[in-house]
Structures are given as structure tokens and as C-alpha cells.
């Protein structure tokens, strides 16, 4: 059988890579994609816990389901914002949307 640590490690790596994407990318859409990676990493953890440790209640599964749902909603909304940004500025580079500085 596969030890749980395998899944957890993979989840951590996936989360980290996603975070790296969020921090290093400039395009709003790419940042969104990286966020999806992070969510996937977290979901792996949830499900691993649910099926390994929480065999009766498997709350993690339900949580993962919600994560997926919310992610879908988030992507929809975020894309709307990106589109709006693009229309206003002709760019989706988040660095250029820095009106909120000092």
C-alpha cells in the first residue's frame, strides 16, 4: 500500500510550486493558474487524510468538493476582473495595476 506521506509530500510540492507561480508570474491569468495548482495541492491533502485517517466521516472529501466548487466560482469571477482590467488598461500585467501604492 502507498504510505500517506507520499501523498502529503506531493501535496506540499504542488502547493509550493503553485505558490512559486503566484509569486513569480506577472500575467494575471497565469497567476490564476498557479492558484489552481495550490488548490490542487491542498485538495490532495484533504482527500488523503479523508481516505486514510477519517474513514468514517471523510469530511476531507466534502471539503475538497467545496474547494473545487469555490475554485470554479473564483476563476469565473477572477477572469471577469482580469477582463475588466484588460479593458481599462490594455494589459493583464498585474505590475502595471499598481494604483494603490503610496
Amino acid at each position: 500500500m502507498i504510505p500517506i506521506e507520499y501523498f502529503l509530500t506531493l501535496g506540499a510540492i504542488l502547493f509550493g510550486l503553485g505558490l512559486f507561480g503566484v509569486l513569480s508570474r506577472r500575467s494575471a491569468i497565469l497567476i490564476l493558474m498557479a492558484v489552481e495548482l495550490m488548490l490542487a495541492g491542498v485538495s490532495i491533502n484533504f482527500i488523503a487524510f479523508a481516505s486514510y485517517l477519517d474513514t468514517d466521516a471523510f469530511s476531507g472529501l466534502i471539503f475538497a468538493l467545496f474547494v473545487i466548487t469555490v475554485a470554479a466560482a473564483e476563476v469565473g469571477l477572477a477572469l471577469g476582473i482580469v477582463l475588466r482590467l484588460f479593458r481599462e488598461r490594455r494589459t493583464s500585467n498585474v505590475d502595471e495595476a499598481s494604483d494603490m501604492r503610496w
Binding site: L19, V22, L23, S24, R25, R26, I31, V94, D95, A97, S98, D99, M100, R101, W102
Partner: peptide, 17 residues
Amino acid sequence: LKFLQTGKIPNYALGIA
């Protein structure tokens, strides 16, 4: 101190991270 507020979201995200 206000110059810490770059207005760039990735900078803030780096801080959060």
C-alpha cells in the same frame, strides 16, 4: 514607510508567503 506600499500585488503576496 509608505514606500513599502508598492501597489504591486505580487509583492504583497510575497509578504503573505
